[in-house]
Design a protein around this nucleic acid. Structure first.
Lengths: 154, 154
DNA sequence: ATGGGTGCAAAATGTTTGCACCTTT
DNA sequence: AAAGGTGCAAACATTTTGCACCCAT
């Protein structure tokens, strides 16, 4: 069952309505290469000739999350990003603390770890999204560069 | 070297100044059992007879982060929480998607995974903080309860 | 004495909510 | 027709920034 169909089914199942706005948000989430913010979703919807209010975007995202079709991820910049769980394959990110690089990691590389977690702690981890902080290869050598006070631009 | 000493050293090293406010924020971060929001830090500082403006709290947190002494974590509720990397032992969290329970996981349980990551991808993961979403043992059985539309309170 | 740091207040962001009107069912 | 959903605008919450004054060095 495709994501659209699943959404539709869950909506009907529960008595929610299908509206053009909800369709638009879902379509945009499908088309996007990567996770998107609420504002990006609204902008993309416009390009599809669909107008959706930002409040409606948030309300739809909330609904999709409640249905388990969407996950919210935080890359640490204060913006919430959203991504359909079933599209583009679930994946994870390594973020370099120094240069900010975002490295994509596929689920398979992390699966053994999640399995161990379930066996040891009884916690069924969902391979939704992990953000792991650290230093990328290039930045490991530059680690000792600390921030300078203002005006100390020697 | 204690965290305070390390902070002091890094400040001096770079020409930054040591102020009562910065000391207060650092002390509060030490005393706190768990991660805290900027507002909680400010409130705690007051109880220590130290007055710190919220803007100063943010500026100090930024500095501590730049020095690598502090990490910001996001539990998904839109609030940023901060925690000293060297206190209370670094740890991680499993968060139940359903009941919201926060389960603490010690670093040792995750270490093998981080080591593998470095060997395979050359990415030196810092065991700062991981937030892993999923279902706790109790909620796994209740998984099929989906949200209801308004007014459908049967 | 210098100039980095602080407090205060305003601004900027991002998200949520109330309400009248519109649309799906 | 009925009830849920949307748009608009105001309300909120959090974080950032400008600026005059203060204080650590």
């Amino acid at each position: 069952m495709s994501c659209q169909e699943e959404f539709l089914a869950k909506l009907r199942e529960r008595g929610f309505r299908l509206t053009p706005q909800r369709e638009a948000v879902l379509t945009v989430l499908h088309d996007l290469e990567d996770h998107a913010t609420a504002e990006e979703i609204q902008t993309c919807a416009l390009q599809l000739n669909a107008t959706v209010d930002i409040a409606t975007v948030y309300r739809t995202l909330e609904l999709l999350q409640a249905f388990g079709l969407l996950v919210m991820i935080d890359l640490g910049d204060g913006l919430r990003r959203y991504e359909l769980t079933s599209v583009h394959g679930t994946h994870h990110h390594l973020r370099c603390r120094r240069c900010g690089a975002l490295i994509r990691v596929e689920t398979e590389q992390i699966e053994p770890f999640l399995t161990a977690l379930e066996q040891e702690l009884g916690f069924r981890a969902e391979a939704e999204h992990l953000l792991i902080s650290g230093l990328c290869q290039a930045c490991q050598a530059l680690e000792n560069c600390a921030p300078q006070p203002p005006g100390d631009d020697a």
